[in-house]
Amino acid sequence: MNAFRLLADLTHLLSIIILLVKIRTTKSCAGISLKTQDLYVLVFISRYLDLFTRPLSLYNTPFKLVFLATSITIVYYMRYHKVVKQTYNKDSDTFKHYFLILPCAVLAFFINPKFTFIEVLWSFSIYLEAVAILPQLVLLQSSSNIDNLTGNYVFMLGAYRALYLLNWIYRFFAEDVVRWIPWIAGLVQTALYADFFYYYIKSWRNNERLKLP
């Protein structure tokens, strides 16, 4: 465990809390992509199958349970809550996210640490997480005004994986740990946020509304 990793996991948790607060307090999921949320449920389920097979960890296990529970809750709200589901931008959330699942599955089939059920699914979840934000970024581009909570949610979500990159650099030098799969996927994931980060920081510094081109 190192400070980068701890900060990264807390940032990830914060992003989910911000989203839950937004949905619960405003009773609205306007600007949130249900497709991205669906993909995150798939990411967490395929990654945390080892909850039951590997020894529990005082740190990881609670986080895994919280990530699973919150991501499923968010999808439930957006799909079934009578008030919230009306606010979902169904016609703007148009990214064909199913086209993301198959390539990640095929890639995981061929590139994984070990050809076992758990390892292939784990690789699948790493690859899928890298691209899961795409529907959300596409939806933000078509949103006329992005509310602060949504902007902060996406920013924290991007920041957490950037902090993981620092954690991996630290672990490479301090613990001589090398993990190509999450490293490359994490780089791709963070790179996808590049232009969002640029516009987010610009709007924050000029104290103006966040607007993506």
Binding site: N60, P113, P182
Partner: peptide
């Protein structure tokens, strides 16, 4: 060893 590293991260 080609044992995959344990998934000690989230």
């Amino acid at each position: 060893s080609n044992q995959p590293l344990p998934h000690d991260e989230l």
